[in-house]
Amino acid sequence: MTFIEIRDIKRHFTLGGSIVKALDGVSLSIERGEMLALMGPSGSGKTTLMNVVGGLDQPDAGRIIIDGEDITHFDGNRLAQYRQRQVGFVFQSFNLIASMTALQNVEFPMIFAHVSPSKRKRRAEALLKAVGLGDRMDHKPTELSGGQQQRVAMARALVNRPTILLGDEPTGNLDSHTGDEILAMLQRLNEQGQTIIMVTHDPRVASYAKRTIHMLDGLIQEDQARPSEPSLMKDAAS
């Protein structure tokens, strides 16, 4: 069974009187364990597609089925539950809560999932250690570098064991070296079976993915599978 099945979805916005067709009939199947890059220029609909998969947005038409469950017409509460159980988000601007420590930021999603405090702490600590921040747990985001902040955000995204990890330009605010670290981390997660969808306009980032989808004007232009070594692609790009 296809893990993520997107059938002819449409999403139109009205912007200043004119209709923007962010998604204009997109169909796509994604298997479990894929690492997929959504590419395309601004306004191509890649972020909207990711938001629809992540349950942050709902299509105007079409269907979206996750793991056999049709989430197209979920109400607010079921959608919140879906995000909580199935989805982890990594954002370009990290979106950490400034007043909370790294540990508290990672624990945050588990509060809404009714995880007990002791279990929360154990899981958050384990994840922060896994992303190499075992010694930075009590630091506030302002006391961390961009790369460290994004690693906290990744730990937060993974904390409820999501089936889908979504990244919206996850390296967009980082220098190339730190970006590579994050991408390598994502790749390792994918090797362990984590399904990952990234939105990017950077071909170098996309080169880490096994499959790249190019979008333009709300439509899929190209769907490429790249079985080749990412490191080779990286060299070619530079």
């Binding site: 942050l56 607010g76 995000r83 909580q84 979106n95 409820n160």
Partner: peptide, 16 residues
């Protein structure tokens, strides 16, 4: 606002 967006993204219900 962003924090509220984040709460929702990580699965906070409307009730939360």
């Amino acid at each position: 606002t962003r924090e509220i967006g984040l709460m929702k993204a990580v699965g906070a219900s409307n009730r939360d």
